[in-house]
Design a protein around this nucleic acid. Structure first.
Lengths: 233, 233
DNA sequence: GTCTATAGCCCGATAGAC
DNA sequence: GTCTATCGGGCTATAGAC
């Protein structure tokens, strides 16, 4: 299909049609992936049938199997996309290698934005990890762990430079993942806790204030004056 | 079956048999519940078949349906037991209403012990909540939320008495749940992070040190001298 | 209580017409 | 690319012999 796009100018009618078809095909494929993500997020791999997904996008399951060779392959494609999004929110620390406070603030804000903007991605990831990551541990080991180790190394360097107190960077990162992702994965329970059916901007802000405050108090040598604003009620 | 047990003395042979049968029945029922918990924890409700569970305990699925009227009823029974265990690890705050530091230390230690001793319970709970708690939101609302509100009230009272700084108790409890349960629910990923296939006592100790240190630094008016031991590496 | 047998349904996947 | 038709198998649950 690419060839229709790379032709420089003066597309003939059937070439235009080729492009249009290709775009429509691309669109349906994306719709399927989005619907699959939503359902896998809710019920996990085993709890979803191709029929469910097909009905969600208004197609037949046979049509769905025309775009994806099998249910497992569709799931893998979803997981791959989820990991892309997950990792894209994880590079805040390396962006500000000389300013621990701002780096930490932006890392936490970014991870909470991920929970807010991509809750289904977060839940698909959570479902897969709770299951022991049977189809995905290799990709996690290759893509997630190096990113984490880079972040841990940054903490260690800050500690050496006297910019922050020595902490166990691995457990700190685990705590940051857990306490930010929970606002996507456990949204239903947090809604019960806060007495509302859906989390709002102010809830994410309150979470951000608390987490930032706790982490800065723990890792910074000097507690910033602004830190206490985070725990006001 | 109870009647066989309540007979005071001199059991005749067939009464003895009744007791024995009853015990065996009870035992198989517990075995089924344990196997079901393990498998539901791994794959969620939709990802497990009665055949899987039956094979795990060495019975037939028809036999399994003799003890439990349906798959969903079996799942509910598992969930109910999980919640019993979960709640039993949640009362540390009210046990020491006058000593915030010890109460917090014991609450965190208790929740981490739950993750360590009952990882399958934790994962079943996580699976259900990620799915939006379709079968369980009522029981969570009735049993979990009141327990949480009691804990939040304790924090508020401590703040009024000047025993600790004012924090948003609801988000603090969410953070404590998230950062302790993650050591059960995400064990596979944490294993990758720490470079070992199974978490050991020292890993849970390191987690406890970090979480206790962070929370005490955040909520206590005076940071205890022992707090910094938690972040040593 | 445990067994065999089976009903009735939904599943993933394929074949072939158009 | 989308449709109808269908295969083979696994699923929950029930019936009935022993």
């Amino acid at each position: 299909m690419d060839i229709a796009i790379t032709i420089p100018a003066m597309k003939k009618p059937d070439e235009l049609k080729l492009v249009k078809v290709s775009v429509a095909r691309e669109r349906l494929e994306q719709d399927i992936l989005r619907a699959a993500k939503k359902l896998f997020a809710q019920r996990g791999f085993g709890g979803v049938s191709l029929d469910h997904i097909a009905r969600e996008v208004g197609a037949s399951k046979q049509n769905l199997l025309y775009y994806f060779p099998s249910k497992e392959e569709l799931y893998r494609r979803v997981l791959h996309g989820v990991l892309d999004v997950w990792l894209s929110y994880m590079d805040a620390l390396s962006q500000r290698p000389d300013d621990p406070e701002r780096a930490i603030r932006e890392y936490i804000a970014g991870k909470l934005r991920f929970s807010r903007e991509h809750p289904d991605d977060s839940r698909v990831y959570a479902n897969e990890v709770v299951s022991g990551a049977p189809l995905f541990s290799a990709e996690i080991a290759e893509r997630v762990i190096p990113a984490l180790q880079a972040d841990v190394a940054i903490f260690n360097r800050w500690a050496e430079q006297g910019l922050c107190r020595p902490v166990d960077g691995r457990h700190l990162m685990i705590l940051l993942w857990a306490s930010t992702q929970v606002y996507a994965d456990w949204a239903s329970q947090i809604g019960l806790v806060l007495g509302k059916s859906e989390l709002e901007a102010e809830d994410f802000q309150a979470a951000e204030n608390l987490i930032v405050d706790m982490v800065l108090r723990t890792v910074l040598v000097q507690i910033p004056s602004a830190a206490h604003q985070g725990v006001a009620r």
